[in-house]
């Protein structure tokens, strides 16, 4: 059974006013438990709206959303439970820190879930470990941390609720390359250990290519593609028309193929490209 199923969802902002705008139109898809999904699309393509629909922050104008087979709006009074099960890390989450200490900030979610002190402590420490929040930061004020450290603390606050589905909206925006790589590796590790579902929204094709099993491509409020990373990035021309790109490494292999070299062009990382070229040269040098 799929963990999330969207069935013909539509969302209209300001319906009936002169500002009426259809942000999402007839979007359907299914996500299996344990998948790592990348979401890409131009600014205004509906990514953020979609994400907010998935945990019930917005209610669809039409269509239904199922979480573990159950329509999330079937019992509107229980929508709070959906928000614990689908955790969202918004863009620049460090601006949402508010507690006196990092520990209390991370504990805020689990506390609202009504967990015992021991359970909260366990969740806080596990979440801190996943995101690289160090023990000695826990008793500090979150405002005394650096930007990158704050971001980790904020992400830990969502992970601490132990959601079935973790959604991250541009978690690496503004981080330097090493910070970007480190955070992505931690998210990958979290996904591997917890074996739950992760949805990652990003404008970085390189990051998405490296990390996602499948990619959902949004365009003007509609689903443009939902396929494996290799299949999505083999459609370079179409992606360009949607205001997107292929990773630079994929482009290199495509250009090489255009020049008549029969390399595999379904390449998503520098590592894969390196191996492909070495193999190719190994073959051709023996001729």
């Amino acid at each position: 059974m799929s963990v999330i199923k969207a069935e013909g969802i539509k969302l209209v902002y300001g319906a009936g006013t002169s500002f009426e705008k259809t942000a999402l139109d007839d979007v359907s898809f299914e996500i299996e438990k344990g998948e790592f999904i990348g979401i890409i699309g131009h600014t205004g393509s509906g990514k953020s709206t979609l994400v907010q629909l998935l945990n019930g922050l917005l209610k669809p104008t039409a269509g239904r959303i199922f979480l573990n087979g159950k329509d999330i709006w079937q019992e509107p009074k229980k929508i709070r439970e959906v928000r614990f099960k689908v955790g969202i890390v918004f863009q620049y989450p460090e601006y949402q820190l508010f507690e006196e200490t990092v520990y209390k900030d991370i504990a805020f979610g689990p506390k609202n879930m009504g967990l015992s002190e021991e359970e909260i402590d366990e969740k806080v420490r596990a979440a801190a470990a996943f995101t690289g929040v160090r023990e000695e930061w826990l008793q500090k004020s979150p405002f005394d941390l650096s930007g990158g450290e704050k971001r980790r603390a904020a992400i830990a606050g969502v992970i601490a609720m132990d959601p079935d589905v973790l959604i991250l909206d541009e978690p690496t925006a503004g981080l330097d390359p090493l910070g970007r790589d480190a955070l992505l590796a931690q998210i990958q590790n979290y996904h591997a250990v917890r074996k739950n579902t992760v949805l990652l929204v990003s404008h970085s094709m390189e990051d998405i290519a490296r990390i996602a099993d499948r990619i959902l491509v949004m365009n003007h409020g509609k689903k443009a593609m939902l396929d494996t990373a290799a299949n999505v990035f083999s459609r370079g021309r179409e992606l360009e028309e949607l205001g997107l790109r292929v990773p630079q490494i994929t482009k290199i292999m495509m250009l090489l193929k255009e020049k008549g070299i029969s390399v595999n062009e379904n390449i998503l990382t520098t590592e894969q490209a390196f191996n492909e070229i070495i193999n190719y040269l190994g073959g051709s040098s023996r001729i």
Binding site: D176, L178, D181, I252, A273, F274, I278, L281
Partner: peptide, 22 residues
């Protein structure tokens, strides 16, 4: 890389292959 930075993927691929003697 030692200073938390990166290079474009094109630069990295070229560098790695060159380091192998190509």
């Amino acid at each position: 890389k030692r200073h938390r930075l990166d290079v474009p993927q094109a630069t990295e691929l070229n560098h790695k292959l060159r380091s192998c003697g190509y």
